[in-house]
Nucleic acid binder design. Sequence first.
DNA 1: GGGGAAATAAAGCAATGGCTACGCCTAGCA
DNA 2: TGCTAGGCGTAGCCATTGCTTTATTTCCCC
Lengths: 141, 141
Amino acid sequence: MATPSMEDYLERIYKLIDEKGYARVSDIAEGLEVHPSSVTKMIQKLDKDNYLIYEKYRGLMLTPKGKKMGKRLVERHQLLENFLTIIGVQEDNIYKDVEGIEHHLSWDSITCIETLVEYFRRDPGRTDELLNVRKEIEADN
Amino acid sequence: MATPSMEDYLERIYKLIDEKGYARVSDIAEGLEVHPSSVTKMIQKLDKDNYLIYEKYRGLMLTPKGKKMGKRLVERHQLLENFLTIIGVQEDNIYKDVEGIEHHLSWDSITCIETLVEYFRRDPGRTDELLNVRKEIEADN
DNA sequence: GGGGAAATAAAGCAATGGCTACGCCTAGCA
DNA sequence: TGCTAGGCGTAGCCATTGCTTTATTTCCCC
């Protein structure tokens, strides 16, 4: 199983490859705000666990396992951002909260949150009603 | 600010006092599945941070600050359990997931989740509709 | 006032992840 | 083709968070 930090790296790597076609050590380091040496170390761990194939000085390629996991991680992150946005969490809190919880939810919970987001997407009136509940609660205080 | 572990202890202590009227080291240790010496150490930290007043070998009392925080923590835990239950997460996953995320959500997010739970509570039909969305999604696969 | 359960102190360990220092590759320019 | 700068890799170290182990102390009750 992947540790939280491994997931962060994998997520970042997947996104970089998706956007630029490749993922260099320095780009990964910059994105995660760590030193390049930390990236090298983690890449080796990810290689050992078969998330990617790594040739030093040459670059890396995600394995099918790594691609699949990376995709899931990126989607999970996006989903949680959407979820918090829908329920009305302030922009400034969203990123940190997602960072905090994304590694700690079972895929069962993720699926259920997915359904919940879809529930609100299908009928925007529901979001309005949620907002009404909020207003009513606030009015009571 | 309290670390995740401090919150776990405080939550446990609050609950014990609430239920039994007092919190002994051994009870706390049992509840959290740690050794009593770990409890002693943490209690000292919580005393230093003014969450409780601690007299060694004698016992402890929550300060107003500690009581308030403990209450919030217990309520937060309950809220998150309710939330996951409502959206359909399996019983077996709920406890671990709540354990994982409870320390990582801003109070803003907690408030919004509270509103969401209230939204479903006010009209049980909404839960049914959520379940329908789920069934429809499942049918598509 | 003595025995045993409970609590405390001190030291240390383990997991995670990050950093520094230094040395090594390689692309790209002359 | 050879040099060099900047990127990359290795090794060793450090910090944090919590927990355990072991040894000692205190309390309570008979």
